[in-house]
Design a protein around this nucleic acid. Structure first.
Lengths: 218, 218
DNA sequence: ACCCAGTCTGAAACTTGTTCTAGATTAGCG
DNA sequence: CGCTAATCTAGAACAAGTTTCAGACTGGGT
């Protein structure tokens, strides 16, 4: 039908930053792969996503799967990107209702958390991949990180651009978010505990708000 | 020479909480294994710690290695426990010099961070194992977590027992510590950035100090 | 219509974590 | 000392991620 050209040679992944011209069939393959991955992950988490199964399940040869995603970690991080994008869309449509930035961020993260609770195995696969990723995946992980940052900044509902202090706070919130998820996924923290941790770290935002009580004495 | 008894059947690991009566030779084997693991990790990080190599390098059969540590993750988490214990000892001898609790904690974590910078590969192996660990390792990971908490509380130099708010802050600090380490290890954050993140999150401690400026308005 | 470069497929091979087995050792005990 | 259960060893076997390769397929350029 269409053009099956030379694209997608080095890294077929980025899709956002540099959507190398993929033909329709290639785009379709990529999507089949990501969908199959999510499907398998929903069933049994990280371990259930087996490269041979993903390949078979998306009607693609194993070698092709590896051409699109150079490792299982790459594949799962790309899946996370995919899911985050959907989440970001959803959140844009229904922004947080709270007034204060800190509360808005906490509310948003709790929504995201609830989404993960709905598919804990999928969350497991994605989060484990994200934190296990080594340097060879840093570009992709960075994309995910930027997406997360964007979601949090969105939630804050700032008027102007964020201050450096605010960006620092957001970084720490992200750290806490990832790590808290991990403790929950590995059964070492309850849902309630994660909620508390999120609310605790969100107080950092208050410290950076120029209008409200910024009373550090450093 | 000594007694090689039936101990160490189920989990030969705990060593702290329930040091199942190991014979001297068993204790020696365990130590050889942990030392060999650290040696290999120092050279090449997570990937360089290969179970066959660890076994050979510590003069133990592969099956025996697996009897002592049921998986590579268990082994590396135990190694982390081991290293943390040493660190805790060192820190007790030279407590932080700062006055304010927040600064003391930041100083202590930066010391720990400097220790990791000295052996980044070892840090990589341990931290990756820690965050990749699944439920089957939660007991051991929990031990590590409690050790970390103890180190931070020590650093705060509190008079009485910590308040719930302080414990929450410590949890978030731990989250940030782990996650920041990961971003550094995977080359996505500079040393300076990690320092900033640590200092940022340590401000949470100020929020919990009953004497100093606790001015949240929530 | 033909050719070339780049893709995709199917299958085998290789690596490393993990499990299993049979036999040698060791240790607690009468 | 000799018995028995637990432990240790050596090595094969298995599982899943990753690599490799020969051959079929695709599509644009001539």
């Amino acid at each position: 039908m269409t053009t099956e050209s030379k694209a997608a040679t080095a890294s077929a992944a980025p899709a956002v930053s540099a959507p190398l011209p993929l033909t329709e069939r290639q785009e379709a393959r990529r999507r089949r792969i990501l969908d199959a991955t999510a499907r398998l992950a929903v069933r049994g988490g990280f371990d259930a996503v087996q490269m041979r199964e993903v390949a078979e399940s998306s009607s693609v040869a194993l070698g092709t799967l590896y051409r699109y995603f150079p490792s299982k970690i790459h594949l799962l991080v790309a899946t996370m990107q995919d899911q985050l994008q959907q989440l970001h869309g959803t959140l844009r449509k229904r922004p947080p209702t709270e007034e204060e930035p800190a509360a808005r961020v906490a509310q948003t993260l709790m929504r995201a958390f609830r989404a993960m609770q709905r598919e804990p195995h999928l969350a497991d696969a994605m989060v484990r991949a994200l934190t296990f990723a080594d340097r060879s995946v840093s570009a992709e992980v960075d994309t995910v990180s930027r997406l997360t940052t964007a979601i949090i900044l969105d939630a804050m509902g700032l008027a102007g651009p964020p201050t450096p202090a605010q960006l620092s706070a957001v970084r720490v919130i992200e750290h806490t978010w990832h790590s808290a998820l991990i403790t929950w996924l590995s059964g070492r923290a309850s849902i309630a505990q994660v909620k508390i941790d999120i609310e605790t770290v969100c107080r950092l935002i208050d410290l950076t708000s120029p209008s409200t009580g910024n009373c550090q004495e450093v």
